[in-house]
Computed example of a mutant assay.
Amino acid sequence: MVQRRVNRWVGVFLLVVGVGGLALTFPPSLLLGVQMALLAVAGALVFASGVTDRVRWSILAGLGNVALGLSLVVSGVTTLGDQPGTGDLAYGALVAVGGLTLAVIGVGYVVEHDAFDTEP
């Protein structure tokens, strides 16, 4: 299945970006550390969804989407400084909405995992 092959590469990319971000900013601030850790977890889960048959791939991909969505929400929160301007608030709100949307899609993958084709 093409989806699973794509998940392998997307997972590797997310994992490299998450671990690389942690390594380059070590020791990171609290929010950046949480964001990079969530990104690395998302990458590991999405990669695992492409290579394992022990757990349904859609469950792992869904959990990866939830972690990726939450990392976007944290990213939106990090843009808000001590006195955020209107642009900062708008950007933070839009990124948070996008992240929450991705997390809801991931929950859909997990809840409706029987509806997905599980052929390798």
Results as ranks from 00 to 15, higher is better:
S75R: 07
S58F: 09
D53T: 15
P28Q: 00
L63C: 04
G76N: 09
S75G: 12
D82P: 00
T79P: 00
S71H: 05
E119C: 10
A67V: 00
T79W: 10
I105S: 00
V110K: 07
G87T: 12
A90I: 15
L70I: 01
R56C: 09
V77A: 14
G99R: 08
F13S: 07
G98F: 09
G43R: 04
T86L: 14
H113Y: 15
V46T: 10
V77E: 06
G18I: 07
V34K: 07
L60D: 02
A115N: 12
L100Q: 07
P84W: 14
L68S: 03
R56L: 13
R54Y: 11
V111K: 05
G106E: 06
A67Y: 01
V110G: 08
V41I: 13
G69P: 01
F47V: 05
L63F: 08
M36K: 08
V19T: 11
G98S: 14
A37P: 01
G33H: 01
A90M: 13
G106Y: 07
L22D: 01
V111N: 08
A37C: 04
D53G: 15
S29A: 11
G69S: 06
N7V: 03
I105F: 07
G76D: 08
G98W: 07
L63Y: 03
M36N: 04
V41R: 03
A42Q: 08
D82E: 14
